Measured scan of single mutants.
Amino acid sequence: MTFKLIINGKTLKGETTTEAVDAATAEKVFKQYFNDNGIDGEWTYDDATKTFTITE
């Protein structure tokens, strides 16, 4: 399955996707992406659209 990440950061904005077997696996991938890029904020997940959103 394809999961999308929408980034609404102070310095970084955009979208990316990842292929994962489930939302929990995608969450781990995206959290690592947050850490690697110094993004910290509030994030949500919409199961209907398989979209994670992080807002700094």
Rank of each mutant, 00 (worst) to 15 (best):
T51G: 00
T18R: 04
I54R: 02
K50E: 01
E19R: 10
V29K: 10
Q32T: 11
K50I: 03
A24S: 09
A24D: 09
I54P: 01
A23M: 11
A48Y: 09
G41K: 04
I39P: 05
T16G: 06
I6G: 00
Y33G: 03
T11S: 10
D22E: 02
L12V: 12
I54Q: 02
N35C: 09
N37Q: 13
I7G: 02
L5I: 06
D47F: 07
Y45Q: 00
F30Q: 00
E15P: 06
A23H: 07
F3W: 04
K31V: 07
A48W: 08
T16A: 14
K10L: 15
E19K: 12
Y33T: 04
E56Y: 08
M1T: 12
E56D: 06
A48F: 09
G14M: 13
V29R: 08
G14N: 09
E42R: 08
T44M: 09
K10Q: 13
I7F: 14
N37P: 06
D46V: 04
N37C: 14
I6W: 04
T17G: 03
I39H: 04
F30R: 00
K4S: 05
A24R: 09
K13N: 12
E19F: 15
I7K: 01
T11A: 08
F3Q: 01
K10P: 12
D36G: 11
G41Y: 14
T55H: 07
Q32D: 10
F34V: 15
D46C: 06
T55R: 05
T49H: 04
F30M: 03
Y45F: 05
I6F: 04
A24P: 08
A23Y: 14
I39T: 06
Y33Q: 07
K4M: 06
T25I: 07
D36M: 08
T2N: 05
D40F: 14
E19P: 03
I7M: 08
A26Y: 01
T11I: 14
Q32Y: 06
K50N: 07
K10H: 14
I7A: 03
K28E: 09
F52T: 00
D40W: 14
M1L: 13
T16S: 08
D47C: 05
D47R: 06
K50C: 05
E56M: 09
A48G: 07
A26C: 02
V21S: 12
W43V: 08
F3H: 01
G38K: 12
Y45A: 00
A24F: 10
E27G: 05
I39F: 14
A26S: 01
A26K: 01
F52N: 00
E19W: 15
I6V: 11
T16I: 11
V29D: 05
